[in-house]
Design a protein around this nucleic acid. Sequence first.
DNA 1: TGCTTTTTTGAACATTATTTTCAACAAAGT
DNA 2: ACTTTGTTGAAAATAATGTTCAAAAAAGCA
Lengths: 144, 144
Amino acid sequence: MKDPKSVFSEYIERNNLKMTPQRHLILDVFLKTEEHMASEELYDVVREHDPAVGQATVYRTLKLLSDAGIAREVHFGDGVTRYEPSQSDQHHDHLICESCGTNIEVLDERIEKLQEELATKHDYVLTGHSMYLYGLCPKCRKGS
Amino acid sequence: MKDPKSVFSEYIERNNLKMTPQRHLILDVFLKTEEHMASEELYDVVREHDPAVGQATVYRTLKLLSDAGIAREVHFGDGVTRYEPSQSDQHHDHLICESCGTNIEVLDERIEKLQEELATKHDYVLTGHSMYLYGLCPKCRKGS
DNA sequence: TGCTTTTTTGAACATTATTTTCAACAAAGT
DNA sequence: ACTTTGTTGAAAATAATGTTCAAAAAAGCA
């Protein structure tokens, strides 16, 4: 039940979809990467395994994975939608270097708690959030 | 020096640009709205005042305003870049209803402080951040 | 002022990321 | 096997934004 592959199979079944070689391959490739991958980047890797797979299928499958709860959309400032495995490992936010683009994942429980509190104060039920911190990493700070 | 218009004039001068009626109009319209406006929405309003203004000019000018520090880019989940006046009034984050899209501006000093702290812990110099909380507003909660 | 240089503008076209259409295909059920 | 339904890849369609380019306008100078 925790294995992404079985989560996906289950999702497939529940929604009367079909498990296909393409979907299987894309899921495999996606899970193997710990990076934040854009659809296009994923597509490149997928093609190395099966050049016949189409770009649209990758887009479609990533959306599926997202719906199934296996992938999570991530938006940096640029116009590209990236995905990260939302697997067992816990939620995190992002600390991005404005100069070199390096992205590190961060988490602060106190912030998480305050976010919840803040939503409640406005009578909202919090379902999710995204937080991006922008700054200069030590390396770039010296470089300039 | 605090007035957005003089800030813009100054910026114009500093960068050997020219103050034109279009830029002036776009700035005026932009300042009059407290909403988070996408370029296209702004364009519609601008056209009511001067139908001759082109879409590209609005895009270009918004980018200028952003560079000049008068406007601030805002990214919700959709692929649209919105702008808000970054004027005198203070920074805020966003609490967005996933159902009806209603957006309210929120701020929690404790969170702000922790963000700073978190960046420092990773040896980053924080230059900015964006935080979006997603949830269900009271109205939509009842509606469903 | 009139001329020159430089920037700006609007329109149309180019680009990027993503979605949709559609005919060919494959899987599942009967 | 036959039908139904979901899937695929390719190509075309969208949507937001950026760029090109010739014409227009501003600023600097003679």
